[in-house]
Design a protein around this nucleic acid. Structure first.
Lengths: 204, 204
DNA sequence: CTAACCTTGGACACTGCTGTCCAATACTCT
DNA sequence: AGAGTATTGGACAGCAGTGTCCAAGGTTAG
């Protein structure tokens, strides 16, 4: 299954043959047909499986931080750094990243898959960011008029930067810089710092 | 040619047949073969053509703002708003957007195309942003220690927001909101405002 | 008008992929 | 060990797409 996902991601649905999958896998082509009957069905099963795995990882990650609630000092920057770290972790998780790429290339022809992604993955992430930001605003640590917009900016900053540094190679100027965890961390932290500075004193 | 680009973008290279292209086009399949001889050659020609068009548009856009040089008041926010507007214009230009999507899906198998994009499109954009930021820093309007990082953040904020609002549909929570020029403009301006607030007083 | 050239559509060989069938083999469970 | 089940590889039909060929029209220029 991971092999299938990998091939679909790297070569696209149309260009991936069942022979490719079979040879990259401990099972034979015939067995694949026995199980799924169809290339299309296999494809959906692959997506489904990995989407569910992503969802579980997401929920597991969502449960963790709630354990240390609002009692601790409202240091906006450090809290947002935590949030940003979680965001990048989700974003860069190999499974999630592959799934994202696959949906991006093959999604337009699978609208219900996009819908699933939106409601089950993007939705929770957004609402978590929004709720954290409003909480920090109510606590007086930030001053945010439009939490949705601020959340959008936060997400764009953090994930965009993570994307740039890792998969970046594709479009950005400094050619593939060799993924460096430390470098990524400081870059993300710098984004959070920018965000906090921008939303600390003055209003929109 | 536009039709071919469109089909390649929407269906991917492998899934697009020459019959598709021929029927979407005023010429016949045979004529396509007479001109290009090969599907692969056609593909490269398509990319090449549109990449050159993108380059021309880019240079045309790059020439314009240089005409009003550094004499005018150093109002960081308005100048960066101009820059951001140009960035989004380039980013959302239909030709450029299609090309970007195509390179993203089909790029890994065409490394030299990626190289071209990097050096001829991404490179100039980055260096322009960097030079503007350093200029504003020297003029005392901003305080930026690491212009490359700041440029990265600026680009991520602006283009990421533009992407979210337009093509977004794909991944983000609020489903396709119907592209609204005004809405986009205020969102981008809000990003610039955030950036300026973040880089105005303090350092990092 | 005529000659050279280009386009068109239809036919076609060839290739590679999907999906099926089957007989041989390996595995599992009791 | 033995019955039932799953897996394997090989062969194969059907299909779709690429690239070629060609003969019939169209177009352009002298």
């Amino acid at each position: 299954m991971e092999a299938a996902l990998d091939l679909f991601v790297r070569q696209g649905y149309a260009a991936t043959t069942l022979d490719d999958i079979a040879t990259a896998t401990p099972v034979s082509r015939q067995t694949v047909y026995n199980h799924f009957g169809d290339k299309e069905t296999l494809f959906r099963a692959v997506i489904d499986t990995h989407l569910n795995a992503t969802l579980e990882a997401l929920h597991a990650s969502a449960d963790r931080p709630t354990t240390s609630p609002a009692e601790r000092p409202v240091d906006a920057e450090s809290q947002l750094n935590d949030l940003a770290r979680r965001l990048t972790a989700i974003f860069l998780n190999p499974r999630t990243a592959s799934l994202r790429r696959l949906l991006q290339s093959e999604g337009p022809r699978q609208p219900h898959l996009l819908e699933l992604w939106r409601t089950r993955v993007a939705g929770p992430v957004w609402s978590e960011v929004i709720s954290q930001l409003t909480r920090l605003t109510h606590a007086g640590a930030l001053r945010i008029d439009d939490p949705v917009r601020a959340a959008s900016q936060f997400i764009v900053l953090v994930t965009g930067t993570a994307w740039q540094i890792t998969e970046a190679g594709v479009f950005l100027y400094p050619p593939p810089p060799g993924v460096d965890g430390e470098q990524l961390d400081t870059a993300v932290r710098s984004c959070v710092a920018l965000f906090v500075r921008g939303y600390r004193q003055t209003t929109q």
